[in-house]
Design a protein around this nucleic acid. Structure first.
Lengths: 141, 141
DNA sequence: TCTAAATGCTACAGTGACTATAGGTTCAAG
DNA sequence: CTTGAACCTATAGTCACTGTAGCATTTAGA
C-alpha cells in the first residue's frame, strides 16, 4: 500500500494533482487508513502513470477520460482510441502552424529594432499599426 | 464618440473583453453618457488596437502593461521594449520545440496503430508504458 | 411621441488543469 | 512519548477571457 506522497514521487506528480484527479473521477477513490489517509495499490499507480503520460502528450482530461473507459474494454476495436489520438495530433499541428507564424513576425520585429528611442522603435510601430503585419487571429496557447 | 459595441466591432474584440481590460487597468476608463454608458474616443480605439495586436502576437497581459507604460515615454531608449519582445519570442520558440516533439510521438503512435482490438493497440501500449516514448515533461500550452 | 428591439450596465460564475494556502490531524521514527 | 514530516479538507488563485442573469438605456421606426 502506497501513501499519496509515495505515489506522487513515483509518478513525478504532486500530491494535490492526485487528489484533483480523484475529484474529477479520473482516479478511483482508494481505501483509507484508520486515520483517514489514502492508501493506494499498484493498479492505482498504473492508472496514474497512464493519465500523466497522456497529459504529457497533450491529451486534455476529457480525452483521457474517454481513453480510460476504452482501455477498460480490451476486446473492442480500437478505432475510437485512434480517433481521440488523431484529434490531439491535429490540435498539436494547428498550434505549431500558429506559433511558427508568430515566431516569424516576432523575429522580424526584433531584427528591425535599431535600439534607438521608443518613438522610433520598429517593434512599437508594428504593434501600433496592425496593417504592418500578417498575423493570424486565433488563439495560440 | 464610440459606444462600446462599435469599438468592439472595430477591434474585432468582444464587449466583455473591453470591460475586462478596463478593470485590469489596460484601458483607461472612458467618459460616460448621461445614462452611464461608456463613450470612447479615437485614442481609446488606438490603445485597444495596440493591446489586441500584442495579444495576437502572444504577449501576455503583464508584458502588454509594461509596453504601454514604455510607449508613453517616447524619448526613452527602446531597450526594454526589445527585451519584452525577445522574451515573448523565446517563449514561442520553446513552445514550438516542445510541440514538435509531441507531434513526432503522436504521429508514431497513430502510424503504428493496426486498427485491431484495444488490447493490442499500440497507442494504448505506449500510453501505458512511459518507457516506450521519449517525451518531454514540460507544459506545452 | 411612443414603443420595441438592440445595446448597455454590474456582478458573478465558469473555463482547463492544476497550484497554493490555511488550519487542522495522523503517522512513523527515535 | 515526542516531534516533525506527511496527510486531511476546503478554499482561493492562476490566465485571459466568456457566459449568464437581471436589470437600464439608447435608438430607430411607426
Amino acid at each position: 500500500m502506497l501513501s499519496i506522497g509515495v505515489l506522487a514521487r513515483r509518478a513525478a506528480t504532486n500530491v494535490q494533482t492526485i487528489r484533483f484527479y480523484e475529484l474529477e473521477g479520473l482516479m478511483p477513490p482508494p481505501s483509507r487508513s484508520e486515520g483517514g489517509q489514502r492508501r493506494y495499490t499498484l493498479a492505482h499507480a498504473d492508472r496514474l502513470a497512464f493519465i500523466r503520460h497522456a497529459r504529457e502528450l497533450g491529451f486534455p482530461l476529457t480525452a483521457i477520460r474517454e481513453l480510460l473507459t476504452l482501455v477498460d474494454k480490451p476486446d473492442q476495436p480500437c478505432a475510437e482510441v485512434d480517433r481521440v489520438t488523431s484529434d490531439v495530433l491535429a490540435d498539436v499541428e494547428a498550434k505549431i502552424i500558429r506559433l511558427e507564424s508568430l515566431r516569424g513576425e516576432l523575429q522580424r520585429m526584433v531584427r528591425q529594432c535599431r535600439r534607438g528611442r521608443v518613438a522610433d522603435c520598429r517593434i512599437v510601430q508594428v504593434l501600433k499599426d496592425h496593417t504592418h503585419s500578417s498575423c493570424l487571429s486565433k488563439e495560440h496557447t
